[in-house]
Design a protein around this nucleic acid. Structure first.
Lengths: 125, 125
DNA sequence: AATGTTGGTAACCTAGAGTTAACCAATAGC
DNA sequence: GCTATTGGTTAACTCTAGGTTACCAACATT
């Protein structure tokens, strides 16, 4: 599997590999809402998270975007969508076991957010 | 500092706090290029990273975006910009010590990218 | 004088992210 | 019959991140 035959096809540098992996991640998790949705579902794992509840819980998201982002997350196996047969039909969304792999990402990211907010306060205040 | 006086101003829930911190992070680090630039500068910490070199190292980025993103990162104290007085003037960029705090983020994110790529391969292949 | 390199800047354009508002069927309560 | 709630869908629109192209000064090489 080691392919250093052609002189100009070096084994991809660590840097290039990392940039590629990063690119992959951003394609699936990038944008304004996906990580927020995953954080929301993680925080309320013990409860039934139906569409309206999630919409109310995540500040500023529109129905259109919420639908779209939930579909994307489902496609990528990060959440499940289950239609309940209740009086007014409800649909519950949950983070999958596989989706929990994203938690280290959201955690480091939100921790950095806290640190950075402090830094800015100190620098400007 | 505990503010549970008004009945409808509950102490902000853990969930809301996390969503807010996440939002902060995404404002500074979000988008297509910033994390890539930080990863690039981290990988080549030992070398002189001038504008042209970075542009060549990060696939697909345009001069316009590179300038803009470098400025943003500088504003947020994550990188430094130093003009060298060399024959054709060069400008070198480096990650700051503070900027290194972002590395856990890029690392978890790019690791997830590797994991996810495998997952997709298994699922589809 | 022409050409190439450095690190940009300015103008224009587009795709897609995202918003708003109206609307839908199904079921329930008044 | 009217209204509300559920989980959406659709059209029409705005807005901005990002891409493309052309251009700039300064200096070096030919």
């Amino acid at each position: 599997m080691t392919s250093d035959q052609k002189t100009d096809e070096l084994p991809k540098s660590k840097c290039k590999q990392e940039l590629l992996a990063l690119h992959d991640s951003l394609e699936v998790l990038g944008g304004k809402w996906k990580l927020q949705i995953l954080v929301y579902l993680t925080n309320r794992k013990d409860q039934e998270n139906n569409f309206t509840r999630i919409k109310r819980g995540i500040d500023g998201i529109s129905a259109k975007m919420l639908v779209k982002e939930l579909r994307d997350l489902e496609t990528n196996l990060l959440i499940t969508r289950v239609v309940q047969n209740s009086k007014p039909q409800t649909v519950t969304y949950s983070i999958t076991e596989y989706g929990q792999n994203v938690l280290p990402v959201t955690n480091t990211l939100l921790n950095w957010g806290l640190v950075h907010r402090e830094k800015i306060k100190k620098t400007l205040g």
